[in-house]
């Protein structure tokens, strides 16, 4: 445990060098990052225009604020462990990682954090430009901004724990592509990525409020933009913490079982 800070520093340097080298991949990632919110923003602004300027209280400028904030929150919480872990298992490169004296999760945390911090250089200017272009209506009060910080951190931690847990499916199933895809579809609709929850048909919106997806994206966004009351905000942060606890336990249990039955490819 004493050596963990050292390990994190080393991983920071590796990821940094990696990112600087593959600038092409970075450009593609940036196109994706910006295109997605613009697509849904355009769709919902068109809907708002056809309904006389607003749907369910959202005008074009509110949609702009929502989807731009969602882009930033998504960047802060994104992970790619579900593909990476499958690759580790299929290529057998998990084996050397298991031999190290620390849990492989530390390396992925450091890698993930470095990527996110580094790419804020792209994300924040992109958000600012989009906010100007679409005249986003950001009305943020001090308390929502203050409450947003823990909500954002919990959202990132929760998504990391959930996607790490799902990634462990690769211990038992060799091709997890279909599971990943299914997860991302559910995420798309229930997290608020495709539309604010208020616009979904009410049974789906109710379901979404009880599941963890909304806590990873839509909740911090709506908290920041002042759509929630202080009670709802507190309740939501509590839900985030509860889900996080559940998935940390699940992750530990499944990891212990998975490692026991893991037989390296080629061994």
């Amino acid at each position: 445990m004493r050596h963990l800070p050292q390990l994190y520093r080393a991983q920071f340097r590796t990821t940094f060098a990696d990112q600087v080298q593959y600038r092409g991949a970075l450009a593609i990632w940036a196109i994706n990052l910006i295109l997605e919110p613009v697509i849904y923003l355009a769709v919902w602004s068109t809907v708002a225009a056809s309904q006389g300027g607003a749907v369910d209280g959202f005008g074009a400028r509110d949609f702009a604020a929502y989807f731009i904030a969602a882009m930033v929150v998504n960047h802060a919480s994104v992970t790619w462990i579900m593909w990476e872990f499958e690759f580790w298992i299929r290529q057998g490169t998990l084996s050397p990682r298991l031999l190290r004296p620390v849990h492989p999760i530390h390396q992925t945390i450091a890698d993930n954090l470095t990527f996110k911090i580094l790419n804020l250089i792209v994300v924040l200017p992109a958000a600012a430009v989009l906010a100007l272009v679409f005249h986003a209506n950001f009305t943020i009060s001090p308390w929502t901004l203050a409450a947003f910080v823990p909500a954002l951190l919990l959202a990132a931690a929760l998504r990391f724990a959930i996607e790490w847990t799902l990634a462990l499916a690769a211990f038992w199933i060799t091709r997890v592509g279909a599971i990943n895809q299914l997860y991302f579809v559910v995420f798309l609709f229930l997290s608020g990525q495709m539309a604010p929850l208020a616009l979904l048909p009410s049974p789906i919106a109710t379901l979404a409020a009880w599941l963890p997806f909304y806590r990873m994206l839509g909740f911090p966004v709506e908290l920041l933009l002042g759509h929630l009351t202080p009670t709802e905000a507190l309740w939501g942060i509590g839900a985030q913490a509860a889900w996080l606890a559940i998935f940390v336990v699940a992750l530990n249990v499944l990891w212990a079982r998975g490692v026991r039955q893991y037989s390296a490819v080629g061994a």
Binding site: V43, V47, S50, Q51, F189, P201
Partner: peptide, 17 residues
């Protein structure tokens, strides 16, 4: 995904642009 997306959008409007 595509059909659900359409369903959600057209629950709020009858015509998209």
């Amino acid at each position: 995904t595509a059909l659900l997306g359409l369903g959600i959008v057209f629950a709020k409007t009858d015509d998209l642009g």
